[in-house]
Design a protein around this nucleic acid. Structure first.
Lengths: 250, 250
DNA sequence: ACCGCGCAGATTGTGCACAATTGTGGAGGC
DNA sequence: GCCTCCACAATTGTGCACAATCTGCGCGGT
């Protein structure tokens, strides 16, 4: 409220006194990240520093820092003197991200399959609990929850595998997958991953050797296959292709 | 404020006039990254903003931005209100990084082995050229060059595999490997990777199925095995272990 | 003599003002 | 009528001053 007016209040940061600042940036990162993942911020959206600063009630510098971090993770694109935009992956990049995921998640699944059986109780509990959450979200047709939970599922498996470094890398890749999905999803697609995830959990518990790993690869392939990575090449590329012959002569 | 001094400096940024600014930051990132990799900046070194600013002839803000980027890549550690330090990986993290490399580089090698033979001329040329460079560095006992070239070799293979996303991830992991090596290398180790690399190149050209991949895994295992990941646990842990029995009674 | 307290110096964190750059709309010329 | 050029508005980039915080050291109390 208020504020709007040019006259600035005596104390510009009424709440900034609290020490809980260290997490402020990661909170904003997460918040923007989620908004991008569930498509409230579609690829290409301009992210004006001042608007974000206002939206989150922080200074522009902090937003700037957050944008730098997101840019590093390839979730937003920073164009010098132009500003920040929600990244718009190329089909090539989308394919690369999914291949990278296959590489990493295969390794994770192989590791999980190598774990002694039965799996620890807390692992089983978390797996089943997560499955229930996904079922519920699917039943409620809560698209946003489904997207978030789907990503979390893969991250959960990575955590069980016990390599935090790989998990961190995968977290980035998952964010970028969401972006790729947002950019290239077909109208007609029904991203019903919950079903795949159910089967995966079952295979992991049952432990027919190699089955869970195979299911994971199939799952990732399936998600990628639901994208339309052919037509929508970058506009510039389209133009170059279209006017290719115009350029030759002269 | 008060606008402070009346006399305003005519130009406050004597050198900032040049347009070649966009690359200034990445130049500094590279520069610091290399210094860390070849151990001119050992793990734990304090990186004072002002000193770096002076050293590179840029403003403190720019250094700050660079440090943020390096922190994101886990090459430096940022402690709030304390400053930036060259990261000092834990043994656990070191192991994780090497395992991540095995995961990714195995995939890269498998992909390279699947490429149709003979390999393209430019690939062969670059491989052989790089091999020659490594031999030369080894002959000249140029340790810094050897370290840099060794990293570049792995990156080169990744580039041939054609997945820029994976290559980028691997680049980070290689930087972190250098850190781990700097932190945990045994006195007596002779990091003679050039030899391993030679064999790898030969296997890749010859293409006995699976051989190059196996060599790569062995190579990474060997590099990791040359580290002393047992003793040097974090200082705090050392203390805890040393005084464990003192604590029990009382 | 030892411990705690507080002050001083140094370093990092942050808001702010202003410079630089880009995009846009309108006036003038061909 | 259309194109070009220019000036203005909006947005990003950067230096700077100052505030907050941490470390080290010396002093006084017990």
């Amino acid at each position: 409220m208020t504020t709007t007016s040019p006259a600035k209040p005596a104390r510009r940061t009424p709440r900034a006194r609290t020490g809980a600042r260290a997490s402020a940036e990661s909170r904003i990162v997460r918040s923007i990240g989620e908004a991008i993942a569930d498509r409230r911020l579609p690829p290409g959206t301009k992210l004006t520093e001042e608007s974000l600063a206002e939206a989150f009630g922080v200074s522009r510098e902090r937003v700037r820092k957050v944008l730098l971090l997101l840019a590093q993770r390839r979730v937003v694109t920073l164009i010098p003197n132009r500003g920040a935009f929600v990244a718009k992956p190329t089909p090539k990049e989308a394919r690369e991200v999914f291949e990278a995921r296959r590489v990493i998640e295969r390794a994770i699944m192989e590791r999980l399959e190598r774990m002694p059986r039965p799996l620890p109780d807390d692992v089983l509990d978390k797996l089943r609990g997560h499955g229930a959450l996904e079922d519920a979200a699917e039943l409620a047709a809560d698209r946003k929850a489904m997207i978030r939970l789907s990503g979390q599922f893969h991250l959960l498996l990575a955590e069980f595998a016990g390599n935090a470094t790989l998990t961190g890398i995968l977290a980035d890749l998952i964010d970028r997958s969401s972006l790729a999905i947002a950019a290239f999803e077909r109208r007609s697609s029904h991203t019903c991953s919950a079903d795949d995830h159910r089967r995966l959990i079952a295979a992991l518990i049952g432990n027919a050797p190699g089955e869970a790993t195979a299911l994971m690869i199939d799952h990732l392939d399936e998600v990628e296959r639901q994208l339309d990575l052919e037509a929508k090449a970058d506009t510039r590329i389209d133009l170059k292709a279209i006017f290719a012959d115009e350029h030759e002569p002269a």
